[in-house]
Design a protein around this nucleic acid. Structure first.
Lengths: 336, 336
DNA sequence: TTGAAAGCGCTAACAA
DNA sequence: TTGTTAGCGCTTTCAA
């Protein structure tokens, strides 16, 4: 039950070569005669030698480990991002230290410090917004940090996203085209950059195109979870709105169920379009029409971008925007 | 952008003490005069010193990192387990290396090797079964491994679970009591130990109590996901069964939706009880009646158990069984 | 193609 | 209470 016993030194001795040579064959260095390579490999197998990544990390100053901060693994949107990240990380032989932040200021800072002290080679940060404390951590980090599914206005932190403004414009426009005049915009905290400067603007863009004045009474702020969507359904029902665009699937699922439970028929009496096309959209009844976004790919591309950054390659673009689409399901009336 | 610059040596020099003393204050060793402690702390703050966990790990042979192997973060049941694990890990100042295995033999082995080479202090393993190759890895591991939400028959690997057999007995009995004679048992691969030696037996126990002969035609094997549940709904519909117990929520969600789409009314014409009480059970319509199990706690307790094992304390019990319950929702007729 | 040797930044005896 | 000194297991010059 005690740790690691056979070291590179043991292998060297048994194979009658130096540590340096063993190191070379382990690392696939070409400068080794193929005979000695075979000899060393045989000894490695025989002894069951497994290189100590910690020692290697200390000596080489690279840990092949990256940090991933996630608000909550339990949230499907973020879990899907994480899956994309892990898959390409594995592809490049990186391991992932995952840390839940709950989007709490203190935890986020704590977690960043932990990651940095573990000497991760890079960090992928997920969340709904970047506050000042975290922005400081990014600055203090001596390794690259990329944002996945997250945008910050200050200084261009590398990031991967879709065009939230245009996506929100698209779905609002669909509802407008369908004849709705009073459309709710259901989102997270409006102080959050992505909501205020992207999604809300997209919603307003669409309204403006149809000469409908913006009414802030029709904006509902939740906190991104099912429960808050469910609770919001009350207020939504008693307002004058006849349709809603929702920034987040969990809230949309709460909304559709809350409405249904309050005997509002979706889509006949109320239409809903959501934003993430995550798994819940097909589980609710009616299923949710949604913006489609390549969530897995956002994670994957973010990780790919990070590998470049860690490799000191300058990526062509610092803020990658992936394409989005739309899928019609049953929370909207069939389009003709 | 280059790694760590200020070391314990810099702090020692600036504070005019030895490295050992700095190490002591960093590690909260009591044997330091409070004046010097303050002096050192001041220097640490001024220089922005952050201990290098890699060097520390090499010197102390403890990394305060544990490995977590998960079939797929994207699956809510496992994500919930992972959340429980991470929360108590954080509480004990451990970080988590998370690795997706897809329950593929090769990946699982690969991932275990990676974890071991990173010198994790312990491992928590999740999945639906333990195959021989993995069992070997457990044996090779020089650190404790605990199973979360997973049971293996060979040699008692420490684990945390609920009593699957009794839980399955409970819900089958409920359906029997409600008058059903032909009840489907919908599960994963029957070669998997937990299905064959626990869940199936529970199902059979209930049948036996009601003198109903076991009919293997009523056993349906899926692969644990929504899609397979949805597809199974065809076969289920065209069989003679009038109710089903399901081993897994994702399959149950697929089943209820498949049945509904095929115009079978749940619960009026068909009753369903599922097993995990995860988030999807309240998102489907009708909502799913379910065994309740403390998923988060299973993860949390598994991690707590691991801390003890890593600390060389022998836990009182090696295979912890947490209590389960039942919640009636709308996929069963109201009980009187 | 191979080896010798100096660290990487820290912990942990052991002394003082 | 504090300092000295070996390592921890590996990578990486630099020589040979």
């Amino acid at each position: 039950m005690d740790k690691q016993t056979v070291t590179i030194y043991d292998v060297a001795r048994e194979a009658r070569v130096s540590m340096a040579t063993v190191s070379r064959v382990v690392n696939g260095n070409a400068n080794v005669k193929s005979e000695t390579k075979d000899k060393v490999k045989a000894v490695i197998d025989r002894l069951g030698y497994r290189p100590n990544a910690v020692a290697r990390g200390l000596a080489s100053r690279r840990t092949t480990t990256i940090g991933v901060v996630i608000p909550d693994v339990t949230n499907h949107y973020f879990a899907e991002l994480a899956r994309g990240i892990d898959d390409v990380a594995a592809m490049y032989h990186y391991q992932i230290i995952l840390a839940n932040s709950d989007e709490s200021n203190d935890k986020e800072v704590q977690v960043m410090e932990n990651l940095l002290s573990k000497q991760v080679d890079g960090i992928i940060f997920m969340g709904n917004f970047v506050n000042d404390a975290i922005r400081d951590e990014f600055k203090k980090a001596d390794v690259p940090v990329v944002l996945a599914g997250l945008l910050d206005d200050h200084e261009a932190q590398p990031s991967v996203n879709i065009a939230y403004r245009s996506a929100m414009n698209d779905i609002t426009t669909r509802l407008l085209k369908a004849g709705h005049k009073d459309i709710a915009f259901i989102t997270g905290d409006l102080n959050h950059f992505m909501n205020k400067e992207h999604r809300l603007l997209g919603y307003q863009d669409a309204l403006a195109t149809y000469d409908i004045p913006y009414d802030e009474q029709l904006v509902f702020q939740g906190n991104y979870d099912y429960q808050s969507g469910y609770e919001l359904s009350q207020a939504v029902k008693s307002s004058k709105v006849t349709a809603a665009v929702v920034a987040n699937d969990e809230m949309a699922a709460g909304l559709v169920n809350g409405l249904t439970d309050a005997n509002v028929k979706v889509p006949e009496e109320f239409e809903i379009i959501t934003s993430n096309d995550s798994k819940v959209t097909v589980i609710t009844r009616p299923q949710l029409s949604s913006i489609t976004q390549p969530i897995y790919d956002i994670g994957a591309v973010a990780m790919r971008m990070l590998t470049k950054l860690m490799n000191h390659e300058e990526p062509a673009i610092n803020n990658i925007v992936l394409p989005h689409g739309y899928i019609e399901r049953d929370s909207t009336k069939k389009s003709v």
